[in-house]
Design a protein around this nucleic acid. Structure first.
Lengths: 205, 205
DNA sequence: GAAGTTACCGACCGACTGGTCAGTTTAAAG
DNA sequence: CTTTAAACTGACCAGTCGGTCGGTAACTTC
């Protein structure tokens, strides 16, 4: 195999396993040795490819986590259908995969925010960055909805985006705790009602 | 000083400082020595009063955390005014204290849930317990609101409770990240709109 | 005032942490 | 074949962790 290909393959394997374990056990509770045992690799291999445990995490965030948020939460609402329907479907799908994870540990991004807030500003910068991308894209989608006439023009797009993100973070935390399926169902029906209240009012006062 | 009084005073000092540090740095990232240094006490004193670090945490949860949730999130909505107003005011107050914490680390309860989920079922039991108490009380308040005619009788109290709790957990996480005050404002205005949609419909179809 | 109890001290233990490094294996290049 | 550099090994280091334990000062009880 080509040298640089092998390098990338190994680094990627490490990152995938690393993200998995950081997600399950938290960053500080996962030792570098834990990851290496899973991969049957040695300490030397790890520090050959990465400068430090922190550098390793940053690369995971930049490579894997960002991509995950894009594919699960951003791209699905970029379509041409009714924005409110796209958001509903996107949230429904995202929560459904969470329900089907036999072992769910919550929304990775908010787990990380909780773990690093006030402890590691460098990591927080990277996490904030992803959250901002999500927020900006949601606001954009909502504005497009207003422009297309699917959303009432009086709706405060930024407020709705904050409220949607909040509720999503929260329900993911709640689902981890008890009765995920029932909670998802209740959440989705309330979400639908909330979004319905944003449809254009045909009756002008 | 009476011996048992001294015992309680010391134990309480330890718990208060423990909760503070666990909140700031997380449970696993706070060493017993960290807490003891803050109090100028020794290892021996700690293990004289508590069986283990975990036992210490459980007592903190049972004593301090439960009381905190009661006084901030449950008792304020037990009044006789309009339930929706009470909820609005309660959430507003809770978020306002978060804004004024110059160093905010999020909603303790959800931080703990994130840290212990899948790692420590014993602790999770105690945390779930508090969440359930909160949920039950919220549902009760909503039902009382329906009974008193402040809330439309078609409203799904359990669904709304889940949605309220979700959004609260989420906004607390978002507020630690960026622009807490602005985010609180946006959240509260959306929350008011959401709760308004539950007022009784006077016009029957 | 002797004996017992409570509250606390701090040295110490063994397991584990992130990180280093001298040295070995692999495979492509000359 | 020989050279070279990349990829990897695993023993090792200093430091931290939760927890133990022998000791002791202060107060109570008899």
């Amino acid at each position: 195999m080509n040298k640089s290909l092998k390098r990338m393959a190994t680094m990627n394997r490490m990152q995938v396993t690393g993200l998995e374990l950081f997600y399950k056990k938290g960053y500080y509770n996962t030792s570098v040795d834990d990851i290496l045992k899973e991969l049957s690799l040695s300490k030397g291999a790890f520090y050959y490819h990465f400068d430090s445990k922190e550098d390793f995490l940053i690369q995971i965030i930049e490579n894997l986590l960002t991509r995950k948020v894009y594919s699960m939460l951003i791209e699905p609402i970029e379509g041409h259908s009714n924005t409110l329907d796209l958001i509903t479907e996107c949230f429904d799908d995202a929560l459904e995969t969470a329900v089907h994870n036999e072992m769910d540990y919550g929304f990775i991004l908010s787990n990380f925010i909780n773990e690093f807030n006030g402890r590691n500003p460098e990591i927080m910068k990277h996490l904030n960055n992803i959250m901002q991308i999500w927020e900006v894209n949601l606001v954009g989608a909502l504005q497009k909805g207003k422009f297309n006439g699917n959303i009432d023009r009086h709706v405060d797009a930024e407020g709705v985006a904050v409220y949607l993100i909040s509720s999503y973070i929260g329900i993911r935390t709640l689902m981890v705790e008890t009765a995920p399926s029932a909670r998802k169902y209740r959440y989705m029906s309330q979400l639908r009602q909330y979004l319905k209240s944003m449809e254009p009012r045909n009756i002008t006062v």
